[in-house]
Simulated scan of single mutants.
Amino acid sequence: MKTAVIGSGSWGTALAQTLQDNGQDVIVYGVDDREIRDINENHKNSKYFGDIQLNPGLRATTDINAVRDADVVVLAVPSIAIEPIVREVDAILEKPAVFVNVAKGFHPVTNERLSDVIRHSVRPEHLSSVVSLIGPSHAEEVVIRQLTTIDAVSQNEEDAKLVQTLFSNGYLRIYTGTDEVGSELGAAIKNVMAIASGILSGLGYQDNTRAALITRGLQEMIRYGTHFGGKE
Rank of each mutant, 00 (worst) to 15 (best):
Y48F: 14
K231V: 12
P96D: 07
D25F: 09
A4F: 02
D33T: 11
S46G: 10
D38C: 07
I214A: 03
T3F: 05
N156K: 00
K44Q: 15
I92K: 01
Q219L: 09
I118T: 07
T176L: 09
H107R: 07
L75V: 01
Q206S: 15
F167C: 10
V77S: 03
P136N: 04
H107E: 15
S154F: 08
P136W: 05
T209W: 08
E180M: 14
D71W: 03
A70K: 03
A196V: 06
A152Y: 05
I189K: 00
V163Q: 11
G50L: 08
G186E: 04
K190E: 13
D159K: 10
V163I: 14
D151A: 15
K44L: 11
N156V: 07
E180Y: 08
S201F: 00
A16Y: 04
I80N: 02
G57P: 02
H138T: 04
N169M: 08
L172C: 13
R210T: 12
V163G: 10
G57H: 07
E35N: 13
G198N: 01
R173L: 03
H107L: 02
N55P: 04
N40T: 01
D38S: 13
A81Y: 13
H120W: 02
R173F: 04
L15G: 00
K231A: 15
A81E: 03
R113Q: 14
G105V: 09
I36E: 11
N22R: 08
V67A: 10
P56L: 03
Y224W: 03
A160Q: 07
D179I: 05
R223F: 08
I85V: 15
P136I: 03
A4V: 02
S10H: 13
Q17A: 01
D71C: 01
A70M: 09
R34A: 15
E158R: 11
S8K: 09
A4G: 00
G105E: 10
Y224A: 14
E83Y: 01
V77N: 05
V153A: 14
I118P: 13
F99H: 06
A81P: 00
T226L: 04
V131D: 13
D38A: 04
A66Y: 01
G50V: 10
N111V: 09
D25L: 10
R173Q: 12
R87T: 02
P56A: 14
R173H: 10
S154I: 09
F99T: 10
F106Q: 02
L58C: 05
A212H: 02
L58V: 07
S129I: 09
G135M: 15
G198Q: 02
H120I: 06
L54T: 03
